[in-house]
Structure formats: C-alpha cells, structure tokens
Design a protein around this nucleic acid. Structure first.
Lengths: 109, 109
DNA sequence: TGATTATGTGAGTATATAATCACATAGTAA
DNA sequence: TTACTATGTGATTATATACTCACATAATCA
C-alpha cells in the first residue's frame, strides 16, 4: 500500500498532467513553443473565446506550466518549462505505436 | 487558426494525457515500472477497490498506455511504452520549479 | 457437478470540468 | 472626464469522470 508521501506526490503529478490533458491547452502549449504571446493572439490562434482561453491559461498557470507578465493592457504568457515539450514526444511515441497496431490489424484482414 | 488535422492530433494527444492524469493511474504506472502485475496485486498496491482499478486499467489500455495478457484466472497488465516514465521526469521538473518558487517566497517574508 | 476466485460491467450518485454569456476591472488614450 | 480595449470572473448549464455496490462472466479445482 502507498504511504502518505507517495499519495501526495501522485496527486501533485496528476494535477500537472491534468493541466496538459485538454486539446485546447495542448494547442496553447504548441503555440507557445515558439515564444510568449498575449491572450488575444492565443485565443485567435487556437480558435476559442477569450474568456474560455483565459480560464484555461489560469489552470495552466496554477499548475506551474505557464508564467505571465503584464505589458500595458496585455497579459503575455509563456511556457515556464520547455521540458513540457518533451512530454509530447512521449505521447507521440504512444500514438505511433497505436498507428502500427492498426496497420497490423488491417493487414490481417 | 488551427486546421482539422492539428485539431485531431491535439485531441488524440489529450486523450493519452488524460489517461495519465489521475493519481491512481499514476500510482499504477509507478507500480508497473518494475514489471507486469495482475489486477489483484495492482489493487492491493494502490489501495483501491478492484472494480475501480479494473476501470482505470481499461481506460489506460484504451489509450494505448498498457497491454495485457491472460494467465488462467488472472489478467496481467504491463506498460506498453516505457517512455511513459519519461513523462514523469518532465512533471518532476515542474514540481521542482514550484518548490523553488515557494522557497523564494518564504525567504522574502 | 458445484464452489471458489479473479476480473469486468451496469446502474446510480456525487463531483469535477468546460463552455457560454454578461458583466467587472484595469490600463490607455483622446 | 469619457470611450475604448484586453483580460478576468460569477453564474449557469451541459457533460464527463470517479466511485461504490451488486451482479455477471470465466477459469480453476475438488
């Protein structure tokens, strides 16, 4: 059985993972890979309402994925940890495997 | 704005990320790092009902994180992709940064 | 055959999350 | 001052998710 420390660690890790586990948030991460951006431009790029994007950004910031600075009227967000991008290389691996499996299945028809 | 292919990709990636974004599922991944295990032992190790664990396992299997084989009465699960473990090194990086930030804040008091 | 064990699943409930709309706030500039 | 713009937030609704319990299934063995 897990002890309390492990439990707490896994909860923290899950919180961070959850902050990445949404298509819109992944689109945001993808967009921010190339540099910081304001809410306005992020919303335009991912194709969603600003208020919705604002909420997603605050979830990600809360989880420690993003940080921001204010510049006049604008709020500029950026990735706090570029390592986040590595996560998606893992995810891509899983996807490639899935593709391979489907291929095998097709051949067996 | 995102095109359809990107949208689909991000949705697939989110599905995989979601399959990791739960404390119990992270505990399962953690437990399976050292080798395959049956549902029974997984449930015991993570400290949750078998029926619940069974459901989590099927989510993870559906997302392509796990695979299983049957052995008599038992069903043995294992990680399909050890790269999943890399993901948590990224998460750990984020956590370390958070810890550093808290420390800074404390010193400023 | 019946009893036992490991696993999976339907149904119900509780909780969390996402999206939308309207509005609040705060910075800017005329 | 007023008007404008970018961002954030409260309230609502819709949807998804997690958990529990009871039961179903399937393999094993006496």
């Amino acid at each position: 059985m897990l002890n309390k420390d492990k439990r707490l660690l896994f909860e923290k890790q899950a919180e961070i993972a959850r902050a990445m586990a949404h298509p819109l948030r992944i689109a945001i991460i993808h967009f921010l890979k190339d540099g910081e951006q304001c809410v306005c431009d992020i919303a335009e790029n991912v194709g969603s309402e600003r208020s919705n994007v604002s909420r997603h950004l605050s979830v990600m910031t809360g989880a420690g994925l993003l940080e921001y600075r204010k510049d006049g009227l604008k709020v500029i967000y950026k990735l706090k940890c570029i390592c986040i991008v590595d996560f998606f290389s893992c995810v891509t691996d899983v996807l490639k495997r899935q593709a391979k499996d489907s291929e095998k299945l097709l051949k067996a028809l």
